[in-house]
């Protein structure tokens, strides 16, 4: 599969290959408790490790610009916190292990698989979900391009895909088709909408920030 090939990276495609996604997710999970403890409680004495849980702990998540307070066990993923605790359901649960991208949201502008990030470690970061992209009933250029190019069928992968595309274009405003195929390899679709997605990304690139698309 081409997404598994280990080719030298090009500058425009530096953003996020599937491989980077997985690597990033792994690092993030293993570092989860440390980040969580800093935000969740008082600073522990130097050298000591404060253990959180296993019971629920109060946390605050800043989602789409608004703070949300909730009580979750430290093992709760950001995805489950969004969907089950806050009823923010745009990010979808599909593989639940960082393989498919349907749960993609951004943390401080970087795309992450919300199923592979613990809610406690998302504290203090700007969490952006698909729900933030539509303002005043007006579709974001990426969402609009998905409609125009029919880059969706059942639509279950679509919110994650749109978030991945948005984050991709924020860092790669002038992508080539090769950049798109590499940079968006971390989102899987079962209905087979990639032809529309490819066109939608080129179209959205034009619409966003006056970026110029290469065919």
């Amino acid at each position: 599969m081409s997404r598994k090939k280990d080719k030298p990276r090009k500058s425009a495609a530096e953003a996020f290959s599937r491989r980077d996604f997985l690597k990033g997710a792994g690092v993030a999970v293993s570092g989860g408790l440390m980040v969580g403890e800093q935000v969740a409680g008082a600073t522990p004495p130097e050298g000591a490790t404060q253990v959180l849980g296993p019971g629920a702990v109060p946390i605050t998540l800043k989602i789409n610009g608004r703070p949300h307070k909730l009580n979750v066990e430290p093992r709760v993923t950001l995805l489950d916190a969004l969907r089950n605790h806050l009823d923010i359901t745009g990010a979808k649960k599909v593989c639940d292990r960082a393989a498919c991208g349907a749960c993609t949201v951004t943390l401080n502008g970087n795309p992450v698989y919300a199923c592979a990030v613990l809610a406690i470690e998302a504290q203090g970061k700007e969490i952006q979900t698909i729900e933030s992209l539509t303002t005043g009933g007006k579709l974001h250029p990426v969402s609009a391009a998905f409609v125009e190019h029919d880059a969706q069928q059942c639509g279950f992968c679509t919110p994650g895909f749109v978030m991945a595309v948005k984050a991709f274009l924020d860092k790669n405003p002038n992508p080539t088709m090769q950049d798109i195929e590499k940079g968006l390899g971390g989102n899987l679709c079962r209905c087979g909408t990639y032809v529309g997605v490819r066109q939608a990304v080129l179209e959205a690139a034009k619409a966003m920030k006056g970026g110029k698309a290469h065919a």
Partner: peptide
């Protein structure tokens, strides 16, 4: 013709069974 439920899907507003709480 653009699919009429396209905007609901691509903006994350479409509620699926999995999203019902």
């Amino acid at each position: 013709i653009d699919r009429i439920d396209g905007p609901a899907k691509s903006s994350g507003q479409a509620k699926y069974t999995y999203d019902i709480n």
